[in-house]
Amino acid sequence: MKKVLILSGHRYPERSRICEAGGKALGTLPNVTVHNLMNACPDFVVDVKREQQLLKAHDVVVMMFPFWWYSSPAILKEWQDQVLEYGFAYGSEGKALHGKPFMVMTSTGGNEVAYTPQGYNRYAVDDLLLPFRAMANLTGMIWQTPALIQGANNISDNGIDRGVNHWLTRLDALLID
């Protein structure tokens, strides 16, 4: 069975109902490691070798985070800048991630309509996640359609349950491929 690494990148995980529910549900699956980056790197100091070993030990990579200012929280960007280095993740010798499925699981404060040309954000979430897709391409990972929970600013407990169940379904599909 494939091993999945979920990089949880919420800046304040203890304040997020979605992060808490998602982490708990995903963490109960066999062969799934939920790696909370704020716990692992509370001062934004990344143990690069440890993080690279985690990546090597898993077959699927998922980044789970709230969509803040059209990107991820800073801890996840710092992780990318430090861990995905030349010679490991890209370059002529950087093949450690080649062929691994990569998925973004994110929540947006605004609802689906907010992320349309007519909505107040003007762009679809898929368009705004283009840097993550480019990262997957450069590192040889296989981009998967993002798994979204939208409308987090006004989401009910039922809505969180539905969204997390969607994430579980998407992850299950990756595990049987």
Rank of each mutant, 00 (worst) to 15 (best):
S16W: 12
I142L: 15
L5V: 00
D157T: 02
A114F: 07
L84M: 13
A136D: 02
P66C: 04
S107F: 01
L130V: 00
R122M: 09
Y90C: 07
I6L: 10
D157F: 01
W143C: 02
H166D: 13
C41L: 07
C19D: 14
H58T: 00
L168S: 07
Q150S: 13
Q118A: 15
L171N: 02
I149M: 15
N39E: 15
L7D: 03
D47Y: 04
K49H: 09
N165M: 04
A136N: 05
P131S: 03
G140A: 03
N154T: 06
M141N: 07
A89N: 08
K3Y: 08
K100W: 06
A40Q: 13
M38E: 12
D59R: 08
A147P: 04
T28E: 15
A124C: 05
N158S: 15
V61Y: 05
W79C: 02
R50P: 00
N165A: 14
L128G: 07
L29W: 05
D59F: 07
N153I: 00
G163C: 10
T108S: 15
T139R: 11
M105H: 12
A152E: 14
Y12A: 13
W69R: 04
S107G: 12
R15G: 10
D161E: 15
A136H: 12
P117T: 06
N121T: 06
V104C: 09
K49W: 02
H58Y: 02
K100N: 08
P101S: 11
L7N: 11
L138G: 03
L174T: 01
I18A: 13
D157I: 00
A114S: 15
H10P: 02
D43H: 13
Q150H: 11
G119T: 06
A147G: 14
L76V: 00
S156L: 03
V83R: 13
G151M: 03
E85A: 14
N165C: 05
V32E: 08
M141E: 02
M135E: 05
F67D: 06
A152Y: 12
Q80N: 10
K3C: 02
L54H: 03
T106S: 14
V61E: 07
R11C: 01
T169A: 15
P73D: 04
G119L: 04
V4W: 05
D157V: 01
V45L: 13
V83L: 05
G159S: 09
V61R: 11
S92P: 02
V83N: 11
K100S: 05
M105F: 12
R133I: 00
R15H: 15
Q82G: 00
F65C: 06
A89R: 10
E51A: 08
D127I: 02
K2E: 08
L97A: 03
